[in-house]
Simulated scan of single mutants.
Amino acid sequence: MSPLLYGASAVALVCLALAMAFAMVRVFRGPSAQDRVLALDALYICGMLVMLVLGIRYTSEMFFEAALLIALFGFVGSASMAKFLLRGEVIE
């Protein structure tokens, strides 16, 4: 790996960790349930991006598969939370 790519991945990981910290603050201090759900969406997207950056950094396909699973479960979780906030129940 070139030193430029190594440094860029380190900067990206630090920025993503900072974004995850801000999202966690919004999850705990969100004024409404919709803000908390949106912060959870941002949190899973940042987690997926961390896995992708680690996959590029270590040239491992296992991280890409983990990112795909995070995206899948995050979408299902977001859809179920949105349905719960709209209707008050998940299963009809």
Rank of each mutant, 00 (worst) to 15 (best):
S2K: 10
S2V: 09
P3Q: 12
L4C: 07
L4Y: 08
L4S: 10
L4G: 03
Y6N: 10
Y6D: 08
Y6G: 04
S9D: 14
A10K: 07
V11G: 02
V11K: 07
L13S: 03
V14G: 01
V14L: 11
V14K: 03
C15T: 12
L16V: 05
L16D: 00
A17F: 06
A17G: 13
A19Y: 01
A19E: 01
A19V: 05
A21G: 02
A21C: 08
A21I: 06
F22P: 00
V25R: 10
V25W: 06
V25E: 01
V27G: 00
V27D: 00
F28N: 04
F28W: 11
F28H: 07
R29D: 02
G30T: 10
G30H: 03
P31W: 07
P31E: 06
S32Q: 09
A33R: 15
D35W: 04
R36I: 15
R36D: 00
V37E: 00
V37L: 12
V37H: 00
V37S: 02
V37T: 08
L38A: 15
L38T: 04
A39I: 15
A39R: 08
L40F: 09
D41E: 14
L43Y: 09
Y44L: 11
Y44M: 09
I45Q: 06
I45P: 00
I45G: 01
G47P: 01
M48E: 01
L49R: 00
L49W: 00
V50N: 00
M51F: 06
M51N: 03
L52N: 00
L52K: 05
L54S: 05
G55Q: 06
Y58Q: 12
T59A: 13
S60T: 08
M62L: 14
F63N: 03
F63M: 04
F63V: 09
F63L: 07
F64M: 05
F64Q: 03
E65Q: 08
A66T: 05
A67T: 12
A67I: 09
A67H: 02
L68Y: 06
L68G: 10
L68S: 08
L69K: 11
L69P: 04
I70Q: 14
A71H: 01
A71S: 04
A71E: 01
L72M: 15
L72K: 09
F73I: 14
F73Q: 06
F73H: 08
G74F: 02
G74H: 02
G74M: 02
G74L: 02
G74S: 02
F75W: 09
G77M: 08
A79H: 08
S80V: 15
M81C: 13
K83H: 13
K83L: 12
F84W: 08
L85C: 09
L85N: 10
L86Y: 14
L86I: 13
L86V: 14
L86N: 08
R87F: 12
G88I: 13
G88C: 11
E89K: 13
E89N: 09
E92G: 14
E92Y: 14
